[in-house]
Design a protein around this nucleic acid. Structure first.
Length: 346
DNA sequence: AAATCGGGGAT
DNA sequence: ATCCCAGATTT
């Protein structure tokens, strides 16, 4: 019976829970921010961002009122930037609809932008003590191994089934600890890729995959499709001590962030000159920089870089291009990691 | 149901 | 190189 895992799991968690910034004082806002940051992102990656974010935006009101550039700058390098844009939209709803206080209710949390079933369950259980499940990738891996479940954990139907299963066995007195214990076990003991540390697992005696010596065979996952390769041409425009950056569109990849000129395909010097001429930018000199590859989850950019010295623009702007000094750029403009190779020129 | 959306660390 | 992460939203 699966319910037998509850007590040994909670005992293990009490003795082994990691000390994490968001566990010190699990207020609804702090739990919310941590859960959004932790979506598809490891604990170690989130650590440097969490305290800085909380210090800069200590509450729902500050988050709701924060200018977008400053908000994205706090998220710069974390990835999946719509997470923080959605969270700000949710903060504005919380201000207007709930008088600035997070709703103490799973269904109401689920309605907020950026909060899905997992995050609503995590906030409900950890911050409010509501006995609802929080099923993430860790939990699915642990459960699939415990029961040798052959189903593909990427399927929504399988996640729903485990939510129902776990929802029916929540310890009513410690739902937050139980959810975190399952995730913690998956994160530090029942780790992916067949390297599980079964000797340290409090559930070893209950684990069917362990008994069968088949930990490596679980969880089952459908193979993922190949990434698309996109050729890009990146132009580092230098005008005196200023460089050119452009704001990306409000939707889609890297929405709202800034970047150097980033053009489709690999362009010849002639094509580059034509492009600049059409935008009334006088190029004085073009120098090849290194090529660079950046891998996203579903596509790759193969970038050819050029350093282009241009005449000082009369005003500050040409079209949507802004010329800024290095220190101002570093302080105020969020730029994706994809351009890391070229930042030394800017 | 499938595609989109980042980045980095482990293997 | 491949995997995968305290997932959500859009198509």
């Amino acid at each position: 019976m699966l319910k037998e895992i509850i007590e040994p799991l909670l005992d293990w968690y009490d003795a082994n829970a990691r000390v994490l910034p968001w566990r010190e004082e699990p207020s609804p806002y702090r739990v919310w921010v941590s859960e959004i940051m932790l979506q598809q992102t490891r604990v170690e990656a989130v650590k440097p961002f969490f305290d800085r974010f909380l210090e800069s935006l200590p509450g729902v009101k500050e988050l709701a009122e924060c200018p977008q550039d400053r908000l994205l700058k706090l998220w710069e390098g974390l990835g999946y930037y719509n997470r923080v844009r959605n969270m700000q939209n949710a903060a504005r709803v919380v201000m207007e609809k709930y008088d600035g206080r997070m709703p103490e209710n799973y269904e109401a949390l689920l309605e907020l932008p950026g909060i899905g079933r997992y995050t609503a369950g995590a906030i409900s259980s950890i911050a409010f003590g509501i006995p609802v499940p929080a099923v993430d990738g860790n939990v699915l891996r642990v459960m699939s191994r415990l029961t040798m479940d052959e189903d593909d954990i990427l399927k929504q139907s399988v996640k729903s089934r485990w939510e129902r299963e776990i929802g029916g066995m929540m310890p009513q007195d410690r739902p937050g600890a139980f959810n975190q214990a399952l995730m913690e076990l998956g994160a530090v003991v029942c780790v992916p890729n067949g390297t599980a540390k079964c000797g340290q697992c409090p559930l070893e005696a209950f684990c069917m995959a362990r008994e069968a010596g088949r930990i490596r065979d679980f969880p089952k996952k459908a193979p993922k499709k190949q990434r698309k390769i996109e050729k890009r041409t990146v132009l580092i425009l230098l005008a005196g001590n200023r460089t050119a950056i452009c704001k990306r569109p409000e939707n889609g990849l890297l929405a709202g962030l800034y970047e150097p000129l980033n053009l489709k395909e690999h362009l010849s010097r002639e094509q580059i000159l034509n492009y600049l001429k059409e935008r009334h930018i006088s190029a004085l000199h073009i120098q090849e920089a290194e090529e660079s590859k950046h891998i996203f989850s579903h596509k790759e950019w193969h970038m050819a870089g050029y350093i282009v010295k241009v005449e000082e623009p009369l005003g500050r702007e040409t079209d949507d291009i802004i010329f800024v000094e290095r220190e101002e750029r570093k302080k105020n403009y969020p730029i994706p990691s994809a351009f890391r190779a070229y930042m030394k020129y800017m």
